[in-house]
Amino acid sequence: MRFLFSRLVHGIFLLIGISVLAFLLFALAPGDYVSEIRLNPQISPETLVALRHQYGFDDSIAVRYAHWLGAALHGDFGFSFAYNVPVTRLLGDRVANTLLLTLPATLLAWLVAIPIGVISAAKQNRWEDRAVSLGNTTLLITPDLLISLSFLWFALRTGYFPVGSMTSLGYEEMRWPEKLKDIALHAAIPITVLVLSIVPVLIRHIRATMVETLQSPFVRAARAHGIPRGRLLFRHVFPAALNPLISLLGLSIANLLGAALITEIVMSWPGLGPLLLESVLARDLYVVIGAVLVSTLLLQAGVFISDLLLFASDPRIRTKSAG
């Protein structure tokens, strides 16, 4: 209980800190939402002045932050200047779409990384390990953007996959199984790109932890007792190496969120990424703050889940926390 409470307090302070930082960075950035409207020769200077006043650009950043924080405490995270709708409404659908990519991608990445990392550790310095290492290095040095564009080119040339968006035209007329298939087809490339962006890091960590654990005295003892290799690796060594990997889960979600922003933009996936980019360029302050806070929340949720798993899996942590 105390653990949950401390996590909650920590999370609230982090959110406030991030919001202050985001506001300050925005204050330092030149230009504001009406800057681009100025280029429209049909809009008079009086209208621009009125718009600036309406959006509160005449107030200092401290006053604007105080107003925003006061409203946010009542659940109002501000209005989008561009869309003229509450930020929460704008972000709701996008968060769900981003999670539709990142959750399966996280799951798949771990499912792929665990056996490869374990085998790579078990076959240390042999051709299997070297092949995995080569693949990993290649993926690590290839920018996510290039991977996305290569898959797009593949989709365009073969026609096997759609070249963007989340659903096809005519999606609404489809029946449920067709709808699921349609979304799965659209998500296939972005999820693959996300998996490829995170898998090398996971494999390296799993391999390193496994190699370290394999050198433990209990493994030598287990080998001496004649426990079969596969059973030894997955039933004894892997659980023992689990703690650092569970901590990595939270960080892998952060990594994925970062990668998802780029992938969503390239693949026209209607998630947080395109909205965040558009809002930053348009200086749509409250949308940016909202999107940043949502990303922080998702990251915190990932870290929190990994903490809970750690708490459940390691009796030492439970004892320390109780003490």
Binding site: A155, L156, V163, S268, E278
Partner: peptide
């Protein structure tokens, strides 16, 4: 008429080429 939101010019060209 359906308006697809495609944020980059290159992606728009790909959509046109693919027949979407």
């Amino acid at each position: 008429i359906t308006f697809l939101f495609v944020p980059s010019e290159d992606a728009q060209v790909i959509r046109f080429q693919s027949g979407e």
